[in-house]
Design a binder for these strands. Structure first.
Lengths: 256, 256
DNA sequence: GCTTGACCCTCACGGGACGTGAGGCACCAG
DNA sequence: CTGGTGCCTCACGTCCCGTGAGGGTCAAGC
């Protein structure tokens, strides 16, 4: 039970790495199996697996193998295991925060494109450039290209041509016109009708762009009044529209 | 204004890539600057920058350059720009979901370590193994190792030794004892006192492990009753404790 | 006992995405 | 006209494996 030694293939299956990877880790001394069979087969113990698991997680974060080695070299007792987990947690959440930032950057770019607002280089830089102050830290690993979700999104995007784009713009204009109409009529931004218009706007985003739940929609609407660029595109349609739309969207997000 | 051509260095600064990278993209024909100066300097137009920006975002997601090339090759009008942004958004959120999963896996492992519960290989596999069904998709890019945040967390983790670990366990036992005491006394899990105990437990996590806001704590507490392993570790202390702690934590999360 | 797979071994070369000089023009400031 | 900085083109180095080539090993079945 405790002397349950595994061969490369089994270990590879368990932890989702390739045999070659295990060979490599052995070669460079990162994870050296504690035993070998008479025939020279690598045999991994429980402890080896634990170490390997840490390596795999660190690797997923993109740390170079050498650094992983030095990290793991600082002892291997029970308490340092917790240390590793703590660090790993921190590193992963940090990465998540970065990517989330990237998503909002993309959202802004989408908004800009939707409103036919060509953003300048300076703004691009602000959005994408070195938004990730320290490491713009590209994440690599090739196999990502043929992921299921990726293939899906690629396929879905295929059915999306010029006349449809035209339609999107028309729908958008219609929604905006509706907002202007309501605003000019003095209808409150928190009213049923305004909320309906907001809901229509949201539906449009869901249909054409991406799944956008109400809270997310509200967050985006905040940009209408906080980001001068978007404020401008709405104010150009009608003065006061940015605030009005924002309020309506927020109100709409508030109802069940 | 429109014929505002930039050299490699300027472009590199703007988009946060290296000059060498731009050379490489030129070499393989991925992003070829539209012009050259008499002296042979690469000169990038606005359109070049737009293309490059998409490349950079895709690259951050870890797509291989070749694939990026074919993606960008399907036309380059205004509407396909939106398509790219849509895809990029989807891809990034997908990645965020993956990493978030990884975080909860780490949380579980941390919980297990905290309770001195050594998880089996089978469970490790479940947690870390191929949780990412298709591509375990390691994210690479070396430079990550010497990120500020990383160095920080590494340094912070240094001050964390064996006697402290002992202290952590004692504190944990104390909190659990408090829970048992309350439960045995028939005090309601939603009571002030039980919530105080829950808050103490949360503070302990914050202090020793990671920043854990109340809602997150509640999510973790759910595991006490849904994950048999954790249920067991609490039930072993006292029958009914898992449910009691879970309820107290949830109640505590509910108060301001 | 012999064959057939599935699995393991050790070289060893390849490849993607750049890093890192080396050697040499280009351009502007003083 | 002399630095200093920025750009150019080779061209080799690196990291993390992928991908054979050539060959042993092991349990199972005939």
């Amino acid at each position: 039970m405790t002397d349950d030694l595994l061969t490369v293939g089994q270990v590879a299956d368990h932890l989702g790495v390739t045999v070659r990877t295990l060979h490599h880790y052995d070669e460079i001394g990162l994870v050296v199996p504690s035993a070998r069979s008479r025939a020279g087969y690598r045999l991994y113990t429980e402890a080896d697996l634990l170490r390997l698991q840490h390596v795999v997680v660190y690797r997923r974060l993109g740390l170079p193998l050498e650094e992983i080695g030095t990290i793991l070299a600082d002892g291997a007792d029970s308490d340092t295991v917790v240390e590793h987990l703590r660090r790993q947690r921190e590193a992963v959440t940090h990465r998540v925060a970065e990517l989330t930032e990237l998503v909002t950057a993309i959202d802004r770019a989408l908004e800009a494109e939707m409103n036919d607002y060509a953003i300048s280089r300076e703004e691009q830089r602000e959005l994408f450039g070195d938004g990730f102050d320290d490491g713009y830290a590209a994440e690599a690993e090739e196999r990502w290209g043929d992921t299921d979700a990726w293939a899906q999104s690629q396929q879905r995007a295929k059915s999306y041509r010029k006349e449809q784009w035209q339609q999107i713009k028309e729908e958008g204009d219609a929604v905006n016109a509706r907002f202007v109409e309501l605003m000019d009529a003095g209808v409150d931004a928190g009213s049923e009708q305004a909320m309906d218009a907001a809901e229509a706007a949201r539906q449009q985003i869901c249909t054409w762009f991406y799944d956008c739940p109400r809270p997310m929609h509200a967050a985006i609407a905040e940009m209408y009044v906080t980001d001068p660029r978007f404020t401008k595109t709405y104010e150009d349609v009608a003065p006061g529209l940015a605030q009005y739309v924002r309020d309506a969207v927020v109100a709409n997000a508030g109802r069940g």
